[in-house]
Each structure stands twice: as structure tokens, then as C-alpha cells.
């Protein structure tokens, strides 16, 4: 099994120094990415899911942010210790990213061809002609009709769904081992969302790419992911495979989250469960369980110390005092 692990994130910490105090956006996050698998990271806004992935790519704006600790091992080599030249070899080549809003990620002044060819020439060492052929092939794979013509157009000539297809084509053009998709469908309509998720699934299977899918939508992770990490206030509170998370969630936050989503397949109109209170302000968070003010199982110890991450079974862990201290 361990040979399949491409990327290991170990105890990653990313802090931001703000006027209001120290913001621990990511505070000790660990997970593994295996070849060809899809990992989902769910959480509400401010839970640190996007920052985690920016840190993996060493894209944290500094100042005010810095990576305060941990390791990101790509085939055993720590990305965080690499020089800028080394990391440029990895970005867009070994690990690539797609974002929520494709319009802000494409340069509006440049044709799609210019933007795609640049990446391919840089990373794959092809000449321009071959790179253009490769780009057209990728656009075709991503389901863009008439790619030979469309490639010479500008981003504004594409619709939202089409732009996201262009982003995916661009991201996969260098055969990366890992594709990080940060809320790839949040700005899209449901029917277009279904198209894009289908595309990510199909291409990652065909090209053997591992996917990290960041989203706030429980429905999307349920359909897409093998493993799921639930994040709250900068930490992973529960990590398990999809069936376990949805079938028998362990952490009170996961349980509450799943119960509070209205479901299409339930026709009984019973009242929705809602988690009381507000998500915490992560600035100057004390060393207690950040969920305890909203938790119905809160005990005294929850207010005093952050619960250790306890393994429940293989590949499954939860950070909650309900499941004992330690193992």
C-alpha cells in the first residue's frame, strides 16, 4: 500500500500574523494522497481547507503568512524545503490546481492557445507546434467542441462551464500526478456541475491522476471521493472513507453537518437539525476543542485541552474526547 502514496502531508501548520492577533489557519493537518484516488476535504468557510492546499504548493503570501511547521513529502522529498526553481518544476507539472472562479485564473488579454502552449513548452520541452497539437488534444478530451477554432479565442468568449473545462484541460496538459481542485463547481449551475464532476472523474481515471477535491458541499464529496477529511477551525476533526463518514459519522461536528443538509431523497418534511451557534473566530484560538461551544456532547475536558487524534480503525481517525484520549 505504501508504494502507492504519492504525497504525504505531515503535521502541516500555516499561520498568519494579523493586526488582531495570530491566525492559525491550518494547525497540524496530516493526510496521504494515493495514486489514482480522490481525497475530499470538506469544511465551512474559514476552516482552512484552501490554505492547506495553497501551502502544499508553497503559495502562501508572505507576509503576513508563513508555514510554521510540518512536511509535505512528494515521493519522499519535502516540497517545503525546496528552492523556488525546484518548486517551479513541480507546480503545474507534477501537481496542478484548478480554482473556483475560472475567469480570475485565465488571463483575459491572452488567447487560450497562448496560455496553454506556455505551460506545455515550459514543462514538457515541446516546440510550439507540438505544444499546440497537445493543447488541442487536451481541449478535445475536456469536451470542448471544435477545439481547433476555440483555442484561438479569448476567455470571455467561453461560458462559465466551458472556462472550467479549459482550466481542467490546462491543468492536466502536463500529466500531473496530483490535481488539486479547489471548489471547482461552486460557481456553476447544477447541470453544469454534473458535467464538470463527470469530466474530472473520467479524466483522472484515464490519466491515473490523484485528485484532492476541496468543497463545502457534502453532496459533491459523497459522489466523488474515496476518502474524506472533515476540517473545522484549521484542523482535521475526522478522516475516513466516504461510506464511513456518511454511514456512521463519529465526530459530533460531522454528525451535525450531515443532519443539517436538506436531502432530495427524503420526502418527509421533518424539521432540519441545526448546529447551534456560529463557527469560531480562529484568531487567538485557545488550546481547547474549538467545537465545544456548539457541541451537545461537550465535557469538562473539552474546554481544557485539544483532543488528540485517535485512530479508530485502519485509515480512520477522529479528534474528539468522546473516543478516549489517545488510542
Amino acid at each position: 500500500m505504501t508504494d502507492d502514496v504519492i504525497l504525504q502531508v505531515k503535521d502541516l501548520k500555516t499561520y498568519f500574523k494579523l493586526d488582531e492577533g495570530l491566525l492559525k489557519a491550518v494547525d497540524g493537518v496530516s493526510f496521504d494522497i494515493k495514486k489514482g484516488r480522490t481525497l475530499g476535504i470538506v469544511g465551512e468557510s474559514g476552516s482552512g481547507k484552501s490554505v492547506t492546499n495553497l501551502a502544499i504548493m508553497k503559495l502562501i503570501p508572505s507576509p503576513p503568512g508563513w508555514i510554521a511547521g510540518g512536511e509535505v513529502l512528494l515521493h519522499g522529498k519535502d516540497i517545503l524545503k525546496m528552492s523556488d526553481t525546484e518548486i517551479r518544476e513541480i507546480r503545474g507539472n507534477k501537481i496542478s490546481m484548478i480554482f473556483q472562479d475560472p475567469m480570475t485564473c485565465l488571463n483575459p488579454f491572452l488567447r487560450i492557445s497562448t496560455q496553454m502552449i506556455e505551460t506545455i513548452v515550459l514543462h514538457q520541452g515541446l516546440d510550439k507546434k507540438a505544444a499546440k497539437d497537445k493543447a488541442i488534444e487536451m481541449l478535445k478530451l475536456a469536451g470542448i467542441p471544435a477545439p481547433e477554432k476555440r483555442i484561438d479565442q479569448y476567455p470571455h468568449q467561453f461560458s462559465g462551464g466551458m472556462r472550467q473545462r479549459v482550466m481542467i484541460a490546462m491543468a492536466l496538459s502536463c500529466n500531473p500526478e496530483i490535481l488539486i481542485a479547489d471548489e471547482p463547481t461552486t460557481a456553476l449551475d447544477v447541470t453544469i456541475q454534473a458535467q464538470i464532476l463527470e469530466l474530472i472523474n473520467e479524466l483522472s481515471e484515464r490519466l491515473g491522476t490523484a485528485v484532492i477535491l476541496i468543497t463545502h458541499s457534502l453532496g459533491v464529496v459523497a459522489g466523488m471521493c474515496d476518502e474524506i477529511c472533515v476540517m473545522y477551525a484549521g484542523r482535521i476533526v475526522e478522516k475516513a472513507n466516504a461510506d464511513q463518514i456518511f454511514g456512521e459519522p463519529k465526530h459530533p461536528y460531522t454528525m451535525g453537518l450531515i443532519k443539517s443538509v436538506p436531502r432530495l431523497d427524503k420526502t418527509t418534511k421533518e424539521r432540519l437539525y441545526s448546529i447551534p451557534g456560529q463557527p469560531p473566530n480562529v484568531i487567538n484560538l485557545p488550546d481547547c476543542c474549538p467545537f465545544f461551544p456548539r457541541c451537545e456532547y461537550a465535557k469538562d475536558i473539552c474546554k481544557q485541552k485539544y483532543p488528540p487524534v485517535s485512530g479508530i480503525s485502519t485509515g480512520r481517525s477522529v479528534a474528539c474526547w468522546l473516543y478516549g484520549g489517545g488510542n
Binding site: A194, G223, G247, R263, L264
Partner: peptide, 27 residues
């Protein structure tokens, strides 16, 4: 029908069994 089948349901067991109607093109 297409709209309903495209909406994700937060349950992996159901999601695996579902047949999606994927619409082509944009609005």
C-alpha cells in the same frame, strides 16, 4: 428530470447507484 438527477445527494451508497442524466451544452 435532468435537474433533479444532477443534484448531488450526500450519501455515497445512493450516489453510486444513481443514473445521471447529463445535459449537453449550456443554457
Amino acid at each position: 428530470q435532468a435537474l433533479l438527477s444532477a443534484a448531488p445527494i450526500p450519501d455515497p451508497v445512493i450516489e453510486r447507484k444513481r443514473q445521471r442524466i447529463i445535459l449537453t451544452g449550456d443554457v
